[in-house]
């Protein structure tokens, strides 16, 4: 079973829920798909036992063969091929999407590819949770290829929990596409509600079963609960604001680790999701 933990709005507690659920459901594989800002291991606090480079194919132009015909630059949909006539032709690293089109259009066979490192895949393990984390280099613009690669590395037959990137854009589609169930973490504020509605559009279009967790459930209004009734989406859990949870979180300790009560609650949550699926 694959369960993705997502949220429209950032900072609602996705990672807290994902790591707590992973500790409760162990043995389990946890994927940190928020590759721009991966935080799951801040809460899991495991030591890294392996890391591999993540690279994408990148065009290299042979200056001896190139005759500056500009066909590659004309074709490139991203304006990533820079042609300085008579001087130099090269691809701009963070703009190129590795589509391979320039190679196909070059009449002189002057373009080949070599791997270009754009991030890391890190492996951690603690409390019977195997964490696979993607981390793109600062300055890289496109996270999607790395997110896709994480899903290619899923171990067979293991239960998987995915900590998704925030928002409702394509990177969220990539990280919920293979899920059997999606948990949406929100907070009872106008921002939380607005972004939850956007995230539900993604899960609706992918036809995924969803449940809602309301974090800091006592700080705001009841509009999330009204929405959940209207749309018949179960509220799986409510986590009231607690300065203890906030303080432990700030030090990288999730509720399921420091509190027996919350550990039980997250075990119940996991069983509840298994029953729904």
């Amino acid at each position: 079973m694959i369960v993705s933990v997502a949220s429209g709005k950032g900072g609602t507690g996705k990672t807290t829920v994902a790591v707590s659920m992973a500790i409760a459901a162990a043995p389990v594989t946890l994927i940190d798909a928020d590759v721009e800002e991966p935080n799951a291991n801040i809460l899991l606090r495991a030591s890294k036992h392996d890391a591999t480079d993540f690279s994408v194919p990148f065009p290299i132009v042979d200056p001896l063969r190139c005759d500056y015909c500009e066909k590659c630059a004309e074709f490139c949909a991203y304006n990533a091929m820079i042609v300085l006539k008579g001087l130099k032709v090269f691809a701009a690293p963070e703009i190129c999407k590795s589509c391979g089109g320039c190679i196909l259009v070059c009449p002189k066979d002057a373009i080949s590819e070599k791997p270009r490192k754009m991030g890391l895949i890190n492996y951690y393990s603690r409390l019977n949770v195997n964490l696979i984390e993607g981390e793109i280099n600062v300055g890289e613009a496109v996270a999607k290829p790395l997110i896709n690669e994480l899903f290619r590395r899923l171990p067979e037959g293991n239960d998987v929990i995915v900590d998704c990137p925030p928002g409702s854009a394509h990177s969220v589609v990539e990280s919920t596409r293979s899920a059997d169930f999606v948990v949406l973490v929100t907070e009872p504020t106008p921002f939380g509600l607005h972004d939850l509605i956007e995230a539900l559009k993604v899960t609706d279009s992918l036809k995924k079963p969803v449940g809602i967790i309301i974090n800091r459930s006592d700080i705001g209004d009841d509009k999330i609960e009204i929405l959940s009734k209207e749309k018949s989406i179960p509220i799986l859990m409510k986590i009231p604001y607690s300065s203890e949870i906030a303080s432990k979180y700030s030090q990288g300790i999730p509720p399921a680790e420091f509190s027996d009560y919350w550990r039980e609650e997250f075990i119940k949550l996991w069983h509840n999701i298994m029953e729904i699926v």
Partner: peptide
């Protein structure tokens, strides 16, 4: 701004 460090933030 948006959260993250990717294209939307750049």
């Amino acid at each position: 701004g948006a959260p993250g460090i990717g294209c939307q933030v750049i």
